[in-house]
Design a protein around this nucleic acid. Structure first.
Lengths: 340, 340
DNA sequence: TTGTACGCGTTATCAG
DNA sequence: CTGATAACGCGTACAA
C-alpha cells in the first residue's frame, strides 16, 4: 500500500553505496564525517526507516517477544503486561500479547502463533504446570522462556511471588481476631500460586492447632464466576466460615457477589480478604484487606530477565527471582460474630 | 539460537523442489496427490513452519496491526483490546499493543515504533484530536487507520460511542430525582468523548431550564488522580453539587476517593454516576450507576473494520460505526438531601 | 574509509 | 503438474 524508501533509494539520494548507508544506519565507527552528514540528511529527507522484516531475516532475530497470559482484562495481569511492555520497548523490543482464557487447547494454538512469528523469547503463565503437551510445545520453541509465577521441571528463568508469606500474615491476622473457620477459595493445584496459598493457609492453621477442614477449601478456576460459585458453596455450609479468603488475583469480585447474594455483611457477618490490590479492593465499602504484590515490578523484572537472557548476559543456570507479598489491612476484617 | 528448518530443507526432506513445497504450504490447487502427501509428511516430521519475516519481505505485509491506547490497565481498554486481539488472531493477524499514558511525545515515539515494524494497520485513540504533529505522524504512516472514539479531519474509519445518549439518560434520571446542581468531571475537550458527554449534560440542563454553571464542570486528565483532584474541587465548593458524574472510563475510583475524603456518603449526601461498567461499579457499596457501552463489542467491530479495509473489502469512503451507550441504574442515586 | 556482492527464507513467474 | 530462478531489503565479509 505505502511504499517506503529502501536502503538502495537512500544510498542513491545520498550519493553513496548501500553498504555505506547501512553503516551509517547502524552507527558503525568507521564512517567519514562528510558522508555521515550527507546520509543523515538523506535519511531525514526521505523519512527512511529500515524494514524490520528484512532486518529480522538478515539477523535471525525479530526483536519481539511473546506473552501468554490468562486474560489481559485481569487488572494485575494488565499492570504486569504494561510494565513489561514499557521495559521491552525501551530496549527496542515489542511484546505480542496473547490471552489463553486458561484453556490448554488455546495455549497450544497461541504457542504455535508465536512459533510462526519467530519471537525471540516467551513470557508464560500456563494454566497447568502438569500438562505434558504444553510443556513439550514450549520446549519445541527452543527459545528463552520466562515463567510467570510458575514452576516447571525445566531450567527456565522465572519471576515468582511469595504468596505463602502474604497468606501467612493474613492468616495470623484472622486467627488473632479469633477466627477458627476460615474459608479459602483458590485455583487448581496445577499452578504454583494456588499451591503456595494453600500451603500458607494450612501451615498457619496447624500452628494454631486448628484441624484442617477440607470442606472449607474450594478450588476451581481463577475467574470471577468460579469464585462466585465456590464462595457461594462455602457460604451455604450449615456451619459457614466466619472469614473468607479469595485466593486468586481476580476472585474478589466473585466473593463479594456471593457474600451479597447470601445477604451477609462485611466485616460484621464475615471477614473478607482478597489477593490483589485492585480498585475494587481499595474503593469497596468497607475497603478490602488484600494479600498483594507489585505486579508492575513483576513485569519490569520479567522483561529485564528475558532481555538479559537474550543478550547472553545470563549464565547457563536459570535466574529465579521471588517478589514479596504483603498483607494490606483495611476495613474488611473483624472478630467473628458471636455465634448464637 | 534455535535454527528452524527452512523451506529448502523441507523440500530436500520431501524430495521435491522448493517451489512445490511452497505450493503445498500455501494450499495451491495444482499439486499432485502423491507429492502433497510426501510434503505434508515432511512438514510433520520436521515441524516446519514458514518464517513470517521472510513472508513479510516477500509479500510486503506483516500481518500485524498496531494499537495505541492510553493504558491497558484501564479495564474498558483492556476489554476492548482483548476482543480486538482475539478477532485479529482468528484472521492470522497479531496486535502490537502500545500505551501512551496520554502523552503526545510518547504517542509520536510509539507511532515511530509501529512505522519501523511496518504494521499493516493502526488502531488509535489519540490524546488529542487537535494536535497537528500527531495527525501528521499518522498520515505519514500511509496505512489504514481506525479511530477509536475519536474524530479527525480525515477520511479514516472509526468506531464511535454514543456517549451523549447515555449521558442524557443519566441526566434525565438525576433531574427527575430533583437534582439541580450536578457536577461533571471529565477529560479535555480535545477528545470526542469529553465533548459528547459535556454536550449531553448541557442539553439536558437547558431542557430542564437550569442555568449552566461552569463551576460545576471540571475537565482534566482521564486518569484516577485527575478525577480525584477535580472531584475534590467540586466537593469543596461552598454550594457543592448534590450529584456527581464521573465522565471518563477510569474516573470512578477517583470520584469515590474524593467523596470518601470529604466524608460524604452515597447516595445520601451525594448521588454518583460512573462511565464504564467495571467491577468497581458493580461491587461497590452501594453498586454504582453507570453510563456504559460494550467495550468488547467495540473491539470486535474495530478489528473487523480494519480487516475489511485491509482486504480491500471497504469502499473508498470511511466506515463509521456508532455503538450505543446505556444508563445502568443501581443504588448510587437518590433524591438530593434537603438542604438545611 | 568506501563500494560490491552474496545470502537470509519466501513466493511468484516462467519454462518444461 | 513440477522445477529452476528472480526478487523482496538489509547487513557484512571482502576487496579496493
Amino acid at each position: 500500500m505505502a511504499k517506503r524508501p529502501t536502503i538502495k533509494e537512500l544510498a542513491a539520494e545520498a550519493g553513496v553505496s548501500v553498504g555505506t548507508a547501512s553503516r551509517v544506519i547502524n552507527k558503525h565507527p568507521n564512517v567519514g564525517e562528510a558522508v555521515l552528514r550527507k546520509v543523515n540528511e538523506a535519511i531525514e529527507r526521505l523519512g527512511f526507516t529500515p524494514d524490520s522484516a528484512a532486518q529480522s531475516m538478515r539477523g535471525g532475530t525479530t526483536r519481539s517477544i511473546g506473552i501468554i497470559i490468562r486474560d489481559i482484562t485481569v487488572p494485575a495481569l494488565a499492570s504486569f503486561t504494561r510494565a513489561a511492555q514499557d521495559t521491552l520497548e525501551e530496549a527496542g523490543y515489542v511484546l505480542i500479547v496473547l490471552c489463553s482464557t486458561d484453556s490448554k487447547e488455546r495455549e497450544l494454538e497461541l504457542l504455535d502463533v508465536l512459533r510462526k512469528r519467530r519471537v525471540d523469547g516467551l513470557i508464560m503463565a500456563t494454566s497447568s504446570e502438569r500438562d505434558p503437551d504444553v510443556l513439550a510445545a514450549c520446549e519445541r520453541l527452543e527459545l528463552p522462556i520466562l515463567l510467570l509465577d510458575r514452576e516447571y521441571p525445566k531450567d527456565w528463568d522465572a519471576v515468582l511471588v511469595d504468596h505463602e508469606a502474604g497468606m501467612e500474615e493474613a492468616m495470623d491476622h484472622l486467627l488473632s481476631l479469633g477466627h477458627c473457620r476460615i474459608g479459602l477459595v483458590t485455583g487448581q493445584p496445577t499452578v504454583r500460586p494456588s499451591r503456595a496459598r494453600t500451603e500458607g493457609y494450612r501451615r498457619k492453621l496447624e500452628e494454631a492447632g486448628i484441624a484442617y477442614d477440607p470442606a472449607l477449601v474450594r478450588t476451581g478456576g481463577f475467574d470471577l464466576n468460579s469464585a462466585f460459585f465456590e464462595a457461594s458453596a462455602l457460604l451455604s455450609l450449615q456451619d459457614r466460615p466466619t472469614a473468607l479468603i479469595a485466593g486468586g488475583i481476580n476472585m474478589l469480585g466473585g466473593a463479594i457477589r456471593a457474600i451479597r447474594a447470601a445477604r451477609l455483611s462485611v466485616p460484621g457477618d464475615i471477614s473478607l480478604i482478597g489477593s490483589a490490590d485492585t480498585e475494587l479492593a481499595m474503593f469497596s465499602t468497607p475497603p478490602t484487606n488484600v494479600i498483594s504484590h507489585d505486579a508492575a515490578e513483576q513485569g519490569r523484572l520479567s522483561a529485564q530477565l528475558i532481555l538479559n537472557r537474550l543478550a547472553g548476559r545470563s549464565g547457563p543456570d536459570p535466574h529465579r527471582l521471588t517478589l514479596s507479598s504483603q498483607y494490606v489491612m483495611r476495613g474488611s476484617c473483624a472478630p467473628p460474630a458471636k455465634s448464637g
